[in-house]
Design a protein around this nucleic acid. Structure first.
Lengths: 338, 338
DNA sequence: CTGAAAGCGCTAACAT
DNA sequence: ATGTTAGCGCTTTCAG
C-alpha cells in the first residue's frame, strides 16, 4: 500500500506538497499539482483516513442512529443520508439501537465517543438529556430527524397538521363517522407521534363540529397485521359502522383495506381509507395518503450537518418543518348518502 | 476530552500501563488495573479509535456493501450483521451502491481503501475480479452473502435446491400445472438468482415427469405490483389455468395471492401459492414458503470475518451453504380433482 | 510556492 | 509487572 512518502518521491516533491495538492488546502503550483496527481494515480494512493483524522481532528464520517432497520421510513431516511454523504466524500457509520437499554448505552457511551464520527444524525429517537450533553461536550453536531429533541436541531413533519389534513380530506368528502387507527402505548415512546396524529384527527373533527366517539378509535402497533385486526373490530360493528378510516401510517391503512375486503365491505364505496407516508405499496393499493419524503429528509439532515461542521457555524437548536402533501388515489371517495 | 495521559496521571501509572489495562493485552497487576479503570471511568475516557487504529493497523470497523436498502432481505442481513458487530465492539460502515457505476467505482477505489475498515461484507453483489483483487491486495478479508463470488469466501443458500423444494411441495400435493413467477433479465444480474430458482423449479418438474410449459412462466421484477400483474396474466387464462404458482420471493407470492383474490379465484382451494423467504408479512397472508434466515446470515458473515481476522487464519475461498426450511401455511393445499 | 519538522493519541517493542 | 520511547501516516505551522 503506497504511502504519502512514496508519492512525494515519485513526484519529486515533499510530503507537505503532496498533502496540499491532494487536499486542495494551501497553495500549490499547477505544475506540482499535476505531478502529484499523476504520481498518486500511478501508485493507486489513497490517504489513510486514520492518519488524516488524527492529524486534523476531522474524520469525514457521520454516525447515524436508528431504532429500526426493517421499516420503510427508516431505510428511506438512511438511503437519502447515505447518498448525500457519499457524494460529499463522507462515510456513514450505522448504529441500530434494536436491542435493550444496555446496547443503547454502549452506543452512546462508547461507540460515539471514540472520535470515529464528526457528527450524529438521530432518526426518530428521543435522546435523553444526558445523551445530548455527552455529544455536545464533544462538540459534535447532532441533528434529529422525525421529532423534536430539546436543545437540538431537528427536522420533522408537523404530525398534528398532517393528521389534520388527512382527516379534513375525509370530512371534505362528506364523512362524519371517521374512525382512527393509531399507535398503541408502546409505539408512543418516541416523540408521541401517535398521540400527535390522534390530536390532529380530533382537532379536524372538532373544527367540523363532530364530537369524537371513543368507539371509533383503535390502538395497534404500526404493522399491517395489527391494523388489520383493529379494522376488523371497527368495521365488524353491526350498527353505526364508520364510513371512513384514517390510519396513522400507510402500512396500517393497507391492513385496514385488507380487513374491509375480507368483510366484503367495498373500498371506497362503503368505506374510505387514508394513511400517512406514501409508502412504496401505496400506489399498488390505490391508497390515498399524506406523503412525507423520508429520502429527502435524510438528504436534508446531511446538508444541515455539513453547514454545522463549517468552522464558526451557529448551532442553534431549532425545529425545521418538513414538507408533506396530500395524494388522493382511489381509496377515498364521497360518503354515500345514509 | 480526556486523553490517555490524564488517565495515566490520575491512576499514577504510565500510559503504557493504561493501554494494557484497558485493552486487556499484556500483563497488568490487578491493583493497577483497578486504579486505571477507576480513573478512566472518572474521566469518561474512551480511546480515540483513530490513534489506536493508526498505531495498531486495526480499525475495529467493518464495511458492509449492499445494493438496496429498502428490501426485506438486505435490511435483515444488515440487522444481523450490525448486532453481531456491536456485541464485539465493532462499528459498521454502510455503503449502499444504489446509484450508477460511478458511485460503485468510488466506493471500491476510494472509500474502501482509506483504511477505514478491517474487512468487507458484500451482500448479493457480484464483485468484479478487479474489485476482489484490490481488496486482496490490501489484505482485507472479504465475505460475500447471497451468492458465490469467484475466489471469495461466500455464504449462500442453494437457490436451485430451495426452488426445487418449493416446487416439490406443490407436486406432492398433487399439482401438475404449476406456474412460476420469476425475475426478469434485469434482476438476474447478480448471481443469476432468478435463473437458479427457475432451474430448481424445472428440475423438480422434470423429476416428476412433467414437461415444463413455457406459457406457465412469467417474468417480473421482484415487487408485489410486478408479480400481481404477472399473476393476472397467468390466472386469467380461460383454459388450462395453473392450479399452483411458485413465486421466486414472498413479495411476489403476495402479489399473486392478491391477484387471485381480485379474480375471484380462491387460495388455496382453486390455486395454491408458495414463495421463498419467510418475509415478515408471510404469516399474515398465511403464505407457505421456504424460509431463509437473513438475520442469521448477517451474523454468520460476521463470525466468519472474525475468524479470518485472527492472525494466521486461513482465508480459503469456499462456499458455505446456509440453512433453509419449508414452512407450510394456508396458501397451499391438495390439488382439486379435475 | 515549497520544505523541514513537530505533533495528533495511542501501542508495542524493548528495557528494567 | 511496569516504564520509556519510537513510531503509525498524515497535516500544518514556521521558515525560507
Amino acid at each position: 500500500m503506497a504511502g504519502i512518502e512514496e508519492v512525494a518521491r515519485l513526484a519529486g516533491v515533499s510530503t507537505a506538497t503532496v498533502s496540499r495538492a491532494l487536499s486542495g488546502r494551501g497553495h500549490v503550483s499547477p505544475a506540482a499539482k499535476a505531478k502529484v496527481e499523476e504520481a498518486a494515480a500511478r501508485l493507486g494512493y489513497v490517504v489513510s483516513s486514520n492518519a488524516s483524522s488524527l492529524a486534523t481532528g476531522r474524520t469525514r464520517n457521520i454516525g447515524v442512529v436508528v431504532p429500526f432497520l426493517n421499516r420503510w421510513f427508516f431505510t428511506s431516511v438512511l438511503e437519502g443520508a447515505q447518498q448525500a454523504l457519499l457524494r460529499r466524500g463522507y462515510d456513514l457509520t450505522l448504529y441500530n439501537l434494536a436491542g435493550d437499554g444496555a446496547e443503547r448505552r454502549s452506543v452512546f457511551e462508547q461507540f460515539l465517543l471514540r472520535k470515529r464520527v464528526d457528527a450524529v444524525i438521530a432518526v426518530s429517537l428521543e435522546l435523553t438529556e444526558a445523551e445530548v450533553r455527552r455529544l455536545h461536550e464533544l462538540d459534535k453536531p447532532l441533528v434529529g430527524v422525525g421529532g423534536p429533541i430539546p436543545g437540538v436541531r431537528t427536522l420533522t413533519i408537523d404530525d398534528v397538521a398532517v393528521a389534520r389534513l388527512a382527516t379534513e380530506h375525509l370530512i371534505g368528502l362528506g364523512h362524519r363517522r371517521i374512525a382512527h387507527i393509531g399507535g398503541d402505548r408502546e409505539s408512543d415512546v418516541d416523540f408521541h407521534l401517535p398521540t400527535n396524529r390522534r390530536q390532529g384527527y380530533e382537532q379536524a373533527l372538532a373544527d367540523a363540529g363532530v364530537a369524537p366517539d371513543p368507539r371509533l378509535f383503535a390502538a395497534s402497533d404500526f404493522t399491517v397485521q395489527g391494523a388489520y385486526d383493529a379494522a376488523k373490530q371497527l368495521l365488524g360493528a353491526p350498527h353505526d359502522r364508520p364510513t371512513a378510516i384514517f390510519a396513522a401510517s400507510d402500512e396500517m391503512a393497507i391492513g385496514a383495506i385488507l380487513a374491509a375486503r375480507d368483510l366484503g365491505i367495498r373500498v371506497p364505496d362503503e368505506v374510505s381509507v387514508i394513511g400517512i407516508d406514501d409508502h412504496d405499496l401505496a400506489p399498488f393499493f390505490g391508497l390515498s395518503t399524506v406523503a412525507q419524503f423520508p429520502r429527502v429528509q435524510g438528504e436534508t439532515a446531511v446538508s444541515v450537518l455539513m453547514e454545522q461542521l463549517e468552522p464558526g457555524a451557529v448551532r442553534a437548536p431549532a425545529v425545521t418543518q418538513l414538507p408533506y402533501e396530500l395524494r388522493v388515489r382511489s381509496s377515498t371517495a364521497r360518503a354515500q348518502e345514509a
